[in-house]
Simulated scan of single mutants.
Amino acid sequence: MSKIRLGILGGGADSLIGILHRVAANMFDHYEITGGAFDIDFEKSKNFGEKLGLDQDRIYKDIDAMIEAESNLPKDKRIQVVSVLTPNFLHFPMAKQLLENGFHVICEKPLTTTYEEAKILKAIREKTGSIFAVTYTYTGYPMVRQMKKMIAEGVIGKIHKVDIQYYQGWINSLIHDKEKRSNTWRLDPEKSGISCCIGDIGTHAFNMAEFLTGTRIDKVLADLNYLYEDNPMDIDGTVLVRYSDNAKGVIRASQIATGEENNFCVKIYGDKGGLKWEQENPNYLYHLTEDKPLQTLKPGHAYNSDFSLEGTKLPPGHPEGIFDSMGNIYLGIANAIKNHTKFEGAYPDLEEGVRGMMFIEKTVDSHKKGNVWVNLND
Rank of each mutant, 00 (worst) to 15 (best):
N263W: 12
N263S: 14
C265R: 11
C265V: 14
C265P: 01
V266M: 08
V266E: 02
K267M: 02
K267W: 00
I268W: 02
Y269F: 11
G270R: 09
G270F: 07
G270H: 06
D271C: 05
K272Q: 12
G273E: 00
G273I: 01
G273F: 01
G273D: 01
G274S: 14
G274H: 08
G274R: 11
G274P: 06
G274D: 07
L275E: 02
K276L: 08
K276W: 07
K276T: 10
W277I: 03
W277L: 07
E278K: 09
E278L: 13
E278Q: 13
E278N: 13
Q279S: 08
Q279T: 02
E280N: 11
N281K: 14
N281R: 13
N281T: 14
P282R: 04
P282I: 05
N283T: 02
N283Y: 01
N283F: 01
N283G: 14
Y284H: 06
Y284E: 09
Y284R: 06
H287L: 15
H287A: 04
L288N: 07
L288W: 14
L288P: 03
L288M: 12
T289M: 07
T289C: 07
T289F: 12
T289P: 04
E290C: 07
E290K: 13
E290V: 11
D291R: 06
D291W: 07
D291M: 07
K292V: 01
L294C: 06
Q295K: 15
Q295Y: 13
Q295W: 12
T296L: 12
L297D: 00
L297C: 00
L297P: 00
K298P: 00
K298Q: 15
K298V: 15
K298G: 07
P299Y: 11
P299N: 06
G300R: 11
G300C: 10
G300N: 09
H301Q: 10
H301R: 13
H301C: 04
H301A: 04
H301N: 06
H301D: 00
A302K: 15
A302P: 00
Y303K: 11
Y303W: 10
N304H: 09
N304K: 05
S305Y: 09
S305I: 08
S305D: 12
S305F: 09
D306K: 15
F307Y: 15
F307W: 03
F307T: 01
S308A: 15
S308F: 05
L309D: 02
L309R: 14
L309A: 05
L309E: 06
L309F: 04
L309Y: 06
E310Q: 13
E310L: 15
